[in-house]
């Protein structure tokens, strides 16, 4: 196990749980969306850490591909959520 595994693996786990806590406890809808993105980043960091094989070895390309897919899915979901929030506030302003 490499030092980088320790450092980034631990950070990934921590960032994910930070994000989870904020998703559960934050009041603002927008900040919950951001928290979900941060949480996802934590998971992605774990994946990239798994793929890392040291400075001289080629990393495992599969987790990289998974993270790329995950990033695109996350941005799609974020965009939909932001539009929903905007629509909801407009609707409430009309009420």
């Amino acid at each position: 196990m490499l030092t980088a595994h320790w450092l980034y693996g631990l950070s990934g786990c921590l960032i994910m749980t930070f994000g989870l806590r904020a998703v559960l406890l934050n009041d603002s809808l927008l900040q919950r969306i951001i928290a979900l993105n941060v949480m996802g980043t934590g998971v992605f960091m774990i994946l990239i850490t798994i793929a890392y094989r040291g400075p001289d070895a080629a990393p495992d390309p599969i987790p990289h591909a998974l993270v790329l897919t995950g990033i695109v899915v996350a941005v799609s979901a974020t965009a939909l959520a932001l539009t929903l929030i905007r629509r909801l506030t407009e609707e409430q302003d009309n009420d």
């Binding site: 980088a4 980034y8 793929a51 990393p59 990289h64 993270v67 990033i71 941005v75 974020t78 905007r86």
Partner: peptide, 27 residues
């Protein structure tokens, strides 16, 4: 740093750039 340049490219373009612009426009 973790030798994932493909992901770094996507993060620079989407994570730091577009998601940021989307969220800024929302606030």
């Amino acid at each position: 740093r973790l030798l994932a340049p493909d992901v770094a490219l996507a993060e620079a373009a989407i994570g730091a750039g577009l998601s940021g612009a989307l969220l800024l426009a929302a606030v």
